[in-house]
């Protein structure tokens, strides 16, 4: 048993000779907000894919709330309480906003073919509960007025927020956000930072955040892990990271030698 809600220990994967992620360790306590940063191609999204089971990790382990999840398939991991958003938005674009969120309630229900075909009372009650919950979730993100709209018709910022909303509807213990602020303007970023803090408190979850916007990361994260070429090069609080010469080197290149 570890003290951490999400305990990722030394996970890694190689694609051919390329070590896309090599021995990543991230530990987040309940309610923690952890940042994962690094230059392009550092392996941040690969790390997410490993944790959420899209790729199977070749080494190390992932433990969620005391349960080992690294051998599970993605939908089982989602059920165990790990949910994510995507760097390039992956909404169900032809479905309505409401259905996007309702789908995320899927893993908390039971779905029998017979119940569906005969519309049993249990099925009807479950559908009603899902709708109610989805509307509630949309309310949190003030998207409820768009419920009937197709997801693809939403403006970019709303699509990003809908993705977070959808991820939260799976009732996760840990939320993984992959560049939620990408393409947002400064005021939208500020609002996003606020809502990340807010949902963390409201839903009592831990957040692992990939972000390129240093201002946002330094502002809200308690701990930060820096990746470069698949390896962890630094780990610590925002101020420690800012003063770490290795991090500066990874981002800005080697200091000129006099």
């Amino acid at each position: 048993m570890s003290d951490y809600l999400l305990d990722v220990r030394g996970i890694g994967i190689s694609f051919g000779g390329l070590k896309a992620c090599d021995g990543l360790t991230v530990q987040i306590p309940t309610g923690g907000l952890h940042g994962l940063i690094g230059p392009n191609g550092a392996g941040k999204t690969t790390a997410f894919n490993l944790i959420t089971g899209v790729y199977r990790t070749q080494m190390g382990s992932v433990t969620l709330d005391g349960v080992k999840v690294d051998h599970l398939r993605p939908h089982e991991i989602a059920k165990a309480g790990l949910s994510r958003t995507f760097q390039n938005i992956r909404l169900f674009s032809e479905l309505s906003v409401l259905d996007n969120v309702k789908l995320a309630c899927h893993c908390r229900g039971r779905h029998t073919l017979l119940g569906t075909l005969l519309r049993t009372p249990r099925f009807v009650a479950q559908e009603r509960a899902m709708t109610a919950r989805a509307i509630e979730m949309l309310d949190v993100f003030s998207l409820q007025h768009l419920a009937g709209e197709q997801a693809k018709n939403l403006p970019y910022g709303d699509q990003r927020r809908l993705e977070i909303c959808r991820a939260l509807a799976t009732e996760p213990k840990v939320l993984l956000l992959d560049e939620p602020a990408a393409g947002m303007n400064p005021s939208e970023k500020k609002a996003l930072a606020q809502s990340i803090k807010l949902i963390r408190e409201q839903f009592k979850l831990a957040v692992l955040l990939i972000e390129h916007d240093m201002g946002l990361v330094m502002d809200i994260c308690e701990k930060i892990t820096v990746l470069d070429h698949g390896c962890t090069i630094a780990h610590g609080t925002p101020s420690e990271i800012q003063n770490n010469p290795k991090v500066q080197e990874a981002y800005l290149g080697e200091p000129a030698t006099a």
Binding site: T52, V54, R73, P74, H75, A78, K79, S83, R84, F86, R90, L91, F92, S93, E94, L95, D99, K102, L103, A104, H106, C107, R108, G109, H111, L113, T116, L117, R119, F123, Q126, E127, M130, R166, A167, T170
Partner: peptide, 28 residues
């Protein structure tokens, strides 16, 4: 009835985006 149900949404989500569907807990 299949279309207007959780099963139908799961099927449609597979068409829309398999990776997202899996991550949202759909056993594709």
């Amino acid at each position: 009835r299949v279309k207007q149900s959780s099963t139908g949404r799961a099927l449609l989500s597979i068409r829309e985006d398999e990776i997202a569907a899996r991550s949202m807990g759909v056993n594709i």
